[in-house]
Design a protein around this nucleic acid. Structure first.
Lengths: 312, 312
DNA sequence: GGTCGACCATAAGTCTGCCTTATGCTGAGG
DNA sequence: CCTCAGCATAAGGCAGACTTATGGTCGACC
């Protein structure tokens, strides 16, 4: 008599399924990496729990009863279906990579390159989420992230992509007007754009601590790439990464307003939970991403070599 | 990545299935009669074991991922199929009763009554096995047994059916020739048939210990009912049960050769493993069998009242 | 016939994974 | 602001899972 509220012991069902499939308690024990005594015990328990004899015992073998055959058929199918579903789930999971990254890096650096990733890995669809804040990777919403920082995050595996460096950048037409930018005491005709903390650090590399930018500072938009867009439009001198805006510099739409390069010691990192270390899609994406980053580091090696790191 | 040699924890699958079906860890915990912490732990374990995120976590709810939906579908089906198979197995088991019993009781007493059992319980098919030795009920070959003895068998539940009594029985034509049977010292023209131990006990009730039957004893066939058949054919006086052979006596084919009735204190018992106590078929058969036995005890009450019990 | 090995069953005792308890965090709703 | 619901995680206890030892029955082989 089956009590509808109590499901039999799953371990007992497991032992029964193996014994039924293999026709032997000894062989089931082998497959389950346990002892025949354990299998015998569990089969007996299942029989007691459902109140039906599933095996007729003979001195050196067991034989399924008619009800036993019925349960065996369903149990074998159930375990096979479950096993197949795990494999299929893993395969489905491998076809879709969800990545969270910073707005500027996503917009200006990564997105233009995705054609190449898609060409190399047509089997992987990339979902990209842009966020200025680091997303929690443990909620299961994202497979991986590209973050800015020092790369020491608990439970995560990290690979450094690019150093976080910055320098004054402006439109070519503003190059002359920006000539006096290096000395904060000299008047400047064009406003400074972008993160004030980065400007402060940049002036610190020039020997000016505690610079007050009241007369010079214009505005900082919500993301670095917007500041750069304003600079390209001729609204001022922005502070930004010569690596992330490599394309704009190479096309001549953006020029360095000064040769000094600064950094706060941070970098951009590709990161994912350690538990996902066997994910093929993450490995593929990581490999491709590291190649792209390596190319860009090479192209920016003269900027990187000049970089002065200042602790914030 | 699914390791083909390691199947995930079944308890983890169970917790996941409930959470997926109910859309909530808290409700799954309720159904499984455990805590949400336990469900959370097991779902996390399953995710780690197969390397795939199955749930995306939100602050107060969870949501199945695409791979999670896939596994959930299979898991829900698997558990439902298993549960249905237990119920079906129990039902199938209820349609077939396998009984082991003694040759004479099975042939002469039970078989003639089976038409009535079949009429009362057409849904139960009875498999009857006759054996002079008590069969082991723990091997799963039989559901129940009718045995002779004192009814004290470990692990078995017993119900007394009939007392094991015996008296001299012969064909009506031999009644006169059997007149001097009670005194072993008188010559007898016809041989005694049947179990010599029973004859010895019967003479003990008559005050004759250690009787030697050299001149009187004929033969004992392999079962009591065969001895009785020989008696009916006129070959001698058999010792047997007036209850088991009630039909032959009532039809006049067999008569008591003497009025004394003896017993060794044994009885016939219906018996089954305690583990089967909830079996409906066993309960139905037992109820019917007790009614039949009760009728026969009533019909034989004058024999039973006269019985003298002798310890063997 | 005797011996050995295979393969069941069961009892007693060990141990480890399951589960509980305690605690913490985030929203939603009042 | 406070309370509640419903997730997550850490620490520790303990009961069920499992092992070891032992026993019984065959069948094969010598």
């Amino acid at each position: 008599m089956v009590d509808p509220r109590r499901f039999p012991s799953l371990l007992a069902i497991r032992a029964f399924e193996a014994a039924a499939r293999l026709g032997s308690f000894a062989r089931a024990a082998q497959e389950l990496d346990t002892t025949a005594a354990s299998v015998s015990y569990h089969v007996r328990r299942l029989e007691e729990q459902i109140g039906v004899r599933l095996f007729a015992r003979h001195p050196q073998r067991v034989e399924l009863t008619e009800p036993g055959q019925l349960v065996a058929h369903e149990a074998i199918n159930a375990f096979a279906a479950l096993r197949a579903s795990f494999i299929r789930a893993a395969d489905v999971d491998e076809t879709r990579l969800s990545l969270t990254t910073l707005p500027t890096l996503g917009t200006s650096w990564l997105t233009p390159k995705l054609g190449r990733f898609r060409a190399k890995h047509p089997e992987i669809a990339l979902d990209l989420e842009l966020s200025p804040d680091a997303q929690d990777l443990s909620t299961g919403h994202f497979d991986a992230a590209i973050r800015n920082g020092h790369g020491r995050w608990a439970g995560l595996r990290t690979t450094e992509l690019l150093p976080s460096i910055f320098m004054p950048l402006c439109a070519p037409a503003l190059k002359d007007a920006a000539a006096g930018i290096a000395d904060p005491r000299h008047p400047l005709d064009v406003p400074l754009l972008g993160r004030s903390d980065w400007w402060a650090l940049w002036y610190r590399t020039r020997g000016f601590d505690d610079v007050v930018l009241h007369g010079r500072f214009g505005t900082h938009l919500s993301a670095e790439y917007l500041d750069i867009a304003a600079a390209i439009a001729g609204h001022g001198i922005a502070i930004g990464s010569p690596i992330l805006f490599r394309n704009e510099i190479e096309s001549g739409r953006l020029v360095p307003a000064h040769d000094a390069v600064a950094s706060d010691g941070r970098a951009f990192w590709f990161t994912f939970p350690i538990a996902r270390q066997y994910s093929r899609k993450i490995a593929s994406f990581r490999e491709w991403l590291c190649d792209e980053a390596s190319d860009d580091r090479d192209a920016a090696r003269h900027y990187i070599r000049r970089t002065v790191i200042v602790e914030p």
